[in-house]
């Protein structure tokens, strides 16, 4: 029997409108993205700015309005649900945001911020229960219970991000979407928070979508990685394979460009690999064709579909 995935995203497309030169244009932030997430699995989504990785996360929890596709969570399509099912979605799929300074209301105490979901949905039977759950959430993220009475400005960046995680895990969710959750932190603090996320995954049986531009942190925490380029997934594979043997030409460029902490690999003069194109100018055919070393004529006319080339490995490229 094949185990049913916890979260199954099929053909997700998200547009948004933007003003450009006085004209309103539609931009496809996410284009036909599909992936699955198993119980206790961590899926890393990696890509450069504007590739749509953040929009994928926001679309799943409906912060952005997806215009096409299905998101099936525990066997139920949660895109069309409302009412009680929607409330379940709010409690079971949780988000951790990038900026630990902006994601907490400066005028609310840490305790109030952590308890917010419970307060919105009336989860707490009593004040004592509310207190107990907040204390539990704080201790789960390695913070002292006294933090509940403090305010965000009294905390360091790492502590705030722990609070952001505590807020996410309070209602015992199934899925945590971490959007650049460690990007704003210093390396030593980043390591602490990555370890914390790994621990919580073990102890709470969490699944995670870990969105980041940094292949280093994605590689550390993820079981599987999806690489996005211009709103599309161009390659998914188990973490080790994508790092040791990237297949899609874009993944290869990305891997090569990542600064590796090894002084024997020096940067050379004369690297010219082009820049990510503007989202406003989506070319016909493969979006990577312009920068691709393997480009052939078909690339400029046909947008390649994601196809399986080895077990668990999907690549969207005509020429590999």
């Amino acid at each position: 029997m094949i185990e049913q995935p916890l979260l199954d995203v099929r053909g997700l497309s998200t547009d948004y409108t933007a003003k450009r030169g006085g004209k309103t244009v539609r931009v496809q932030a996410v284009k036909d993205v599909s992936f699955t997430l198993a119980k206790r699995e961590v899926l890393g989504i990696v890509g450069e700015s504007g590739c749509g990785k953040t929009s994928v996360g926001r679309s799943i929890i409906r912060l952005a309005k997806p215009h096409r596709g299905e998101v099936i969570f525990s066997g139920k399509d949660i895109f069309t649900t409302g009412g009680d099912a929607l409330k379940q979605l709010r409690l079971k799929i949780r988000m951790v945001f990038q900026d630990p300074f902006a994601s907490l209301n400066p005028r609310r105490s840490i305790g109030d911020s952590i308890a917010e979901t419970g307060d919105i949905h009336g989860l707490f039977a009593s004040k004592a229960e509310r207190h107990r759950q907040v204390q539990q959430a704080l201790s789960n993220v390695g913070l002292d219970g006294s933090f509940a009475a403090r305010y965000p400005h009294e905390l360091s960046g790492g502590q705030r991000q722990r609070v952001g995680i505590a807020r996410a895990i309070l209602p015992a969710p199934d899925v945590v979407i971490a959007d650049e959750a460690v990007s704003a932190l210093d390396v030593s603090v980043q390591a602490q928070v990555l370890n914390l996320l790994a621990d919580l995954r073990e102890s709470m049986g969490l699944s995670m979508i870990f969105i980041s531009h940094d292949l280093g942190v994605v590689g550390q925490i993820s079981d599987r990685v999806a690489v996005m380029y211009m709103g599309r997934i161009v390659e998914t594979a188990p973490t080790a394979s994508i790092i040791e043997q990237p297949i899609h030409p874009y993944t290869r460029t990305l891997m090569a460009a990542r600064p590796k902490p090894d002084p024997r690999i020096r940067i050379k003069a004369g690297i010219e690999i082009g820049e990510p194109p503007s989202q406003f100018e989506r070319p016909a055919g493969c979006p990577y064709a312009k920068r691709c070393p393997l480009v052939t004529t078909i690339c400029t006319t046909d947008d390649p579909a994601l196809r399986t080339i080895a077990p668990g490995r999907l690549v969207a490229c005509h020429n590999v």
Partner: peptide, 14 residues
């Protein structure tokens, strides 16, 4: 972005 970063670093080296 990393791909852009690599090019700027390469330029500085040059």
């Amino acid at each position: 972005d990393v791909t852009v970063q690599a090019q700027i670093l390469s330029l500085l080296r040059e």
